[in-house]
Write a protein that binds this DNA or RNA. Structure first.
Lengths: 227, 227
DNA sequence: TGGAGTACCTACAGCCATGTCAGTAGTCGA
DNA sequence: TCGACTACTGACATGGCTGTAGGTACTCCA
């Protein structure tokens, strides 16, 4: 009845490490930090737990690797979300939020921060790169519209604001929803992101009316100014 | 040499529970969730670990109590920060950030969210109350200045934005600093809060010039408008 | 002042997660 | 096809953490 599953499946070391990390990430994301147990991860991967130790030397080694992989994965995701072909601000926020929330990156990052297992600052300063990208785009748009480009520092702060807010929201969105008295969390969070997108565009003289008012309108169509 | 420390110190049950929770909170705040061990907490309190079990029945019981106490403590802190006698926006942000960061409430809350040990929604919707308070103040200020009061929904969103951002910053500020390429984290975070305060005041037509520009000025003196 | 109640203790039991060891079985090159 | 290499395994050792049992001492009240 049961298919003759090969008793052993042999992977390359890299494959094995990757599978194990993925399983560990899943465990961490939806079970909290205490759920990262070698035996469970091993079961998820269909291997014996000493194999994990073989590849990562110790549980601590696995956790460090996990933190590193989380950081780089997050970097990649963020950069991809921004480098993507000219989406609206709201779309960017949605995409970042999804990445952070659904793939558990926010949790990974939070856990990383909480346990002080942060990788040695050898990762690229991705938020700075991100701010650079945003600045370039805003400067181009401003030039096209005959306005002055926003100051660099404000852009940096805004990026940080969005990063912190999206992280906080991805991580503790449901708590915030409860504290706000909102029953339907997801919908409210979406409207919140729409609103934030509008405010950001207004903040940088980029919105449909270039005024400070944006309200909770559906995502403003900023492409109109260019077409 | 060693002072004749009383071998046993007898507390009321409430005192004991309180001490234990405080110690547990400290452990959690600066050691991560895996650092909440009965034996360590007991040592911190100068008691034997079965005493903790006597008061909380099990480790899980302690954790649940911890989550509850964290939620109410955070509520209290937030409300106190806002109910306080008319501080500037920047001061409020600083105070909330401190509460969140230094007393480890952000970490407690994050852990609560991560392990899905959230207390049953019986806590007051403190963010809603907070938004109410902010709305009252803004309405009064607007009336005094002969302006229209900001819409309720925008205030709610702004409160949520600030909450998420302050949580994210308190929890993962150093990570954000590294990703932004800022070496001196604390100073940058402070300037960031100043900037955010300015933007918020501008956003609600409340700043010194009521314009969208606020930059990184030192906290605007909005009391001038009233004196 | 004696007894009930309970905060607190020491000692111990059991469990479970990490880590070790010695061996097995795929893979690859000579 | 042989040998080296290594991914992988089952069985076991170990340590530490939670939880139990039974006793001790403090407090309060009749």
């Amino acid at each position: 009845m049961k298919a003759p599953v090969p008793v052993r499946r042999r992977r390359t070391a890299e494959e094995a490490r990757h599978e194990i990390l993925a399983a560990a990430q899943r465990r961490l994301a939806d079970g909290g930090p205490e759920a990262v147990r070698l035996q469970d991860i091993a079961r998820d991967c269909g291997i014996a737990h000493p194999t994990i130790l073989h590849h990562f030397h110790s549980r601590e080694g696995l956790l460090v690797a996990l933190a590193r992989s989380a950081a780089t994965a997050l970097n990649d995701d963020i950069l991809r979300a921004v480098t993507a072909p000219q989406p609206g601000t709201a779309a960017v926020l949605d995409r970042i939020f999804e990445t952070l929330g659904e793939s558990g990156h926010a949790r990974l990052l939070a856990w990383t921060a909480m346990t002080a297992r942060a990788p040695r600052g050898d990762e690229p300063a991705s938020l700075r790169l991100l701010a650079d990208a945003v600045q370039r785009r805003l400067a181009a748009d401003a030039a096209a519209a005959g306005r002055a480009a926003p100051a660099r520092e404000r852009i940096g702060f805004a990026v940080r604001l969005v990063a912190a807010a999206m992280l906080g929201d991805a991580l503790m969105g449901d708590v915030l929803n409860r504290l706000s008295g909102h029953a339907d969390g997801a919908a409210h969070q979406r409207r919140f992101r729409r609103w934030l997108a509008g405010e950001l565009e207004a903040m940088f003289g980029h919105g449909p009316e270039a005024g400070p008012r944006a309200g909770a309108r559906p995502a403003p169509r900023r492409r109109a100014r260019k077409g």
